[in-house]
């Protein structure tokens, strides 16, 4: 690829920003209400309780393109004490859905780590659905910084 300035700008904007709000193209960012609605869709209308699920995110993400996120849920992972799934939302992204993890007894522990894209400073939300129908939530704010060098 010929690295013209235009080219580079386009590419980095696309790569870095994924959806830099206020850029040349700014897809509508989700509102916290959208994310809340998606949480309720996932839980089937049950308001999630606190505890059990814990989300581990950096306080400050060095680059919004690759933000490590871990989630763990307290559970024996046997019989009825089983985590079925954990959904991750980012309430400030163009689309709040990030990923859904599904666990089984064979998982041994309800634990997962991945790397995600965050368009701006926002909340990352994890909602865990247990086999007995109970749901739990954790929420962490991640600050996404703006690089000084060309964005």
């Amino acid at each position: 690829m010929q690295l013209t300035r235009r080219n580079v700008l386009g590419l980095t904007a696309g790569a870095a920003a994924f959806a830099m709000a206020g850029g040349r193209f700014s897809p509508a960012l989700a509102s916290a209400e959208d994310a809340e609605k998606m949480v309720m869709d996932f839980t089937g209308g049950v308001t999630p309780g606190e505890g059990k699920v814990s989300l581990n995110t950096p306080e400050i993400a060095e680059n919004g393109n690759t933000v490590p996120v871990s989630v763990t849920v307290e559970s024996a992972m046997e019989g009825d004490d089983l985590v079925e799934s954990v959904i991750i939302f980012a309430d400030g992204n163009p689309n709040p859905a990030v990923a859904t993890f599904h666990f089984t007894e064979m998982s041994g522990e309800a634990l997962a780590t991945t790397r995600i894209r965050l368009a701006k400073t926002q909340n990352v939300i994890a909602v865990a659905k247990m086999k007995d129908g109970s749901v739990f939530m954790d929420k962490k704010e991640v600050k996404v910084t703006i690089g000084g060098c060309g964005g």
């Binding site: 994924f18 980012a90 992204n93 859905a97 859904t100 993890f101 599904h102 991945t114 790397r115 995600i116």
Partner: peptide, 11 residues
Amino acid sequence: VFECDLDPAVS
């Protein structure tokens, strides 16, 4: 053992 549905926000 483990399954994940990915959305475009995965890096």
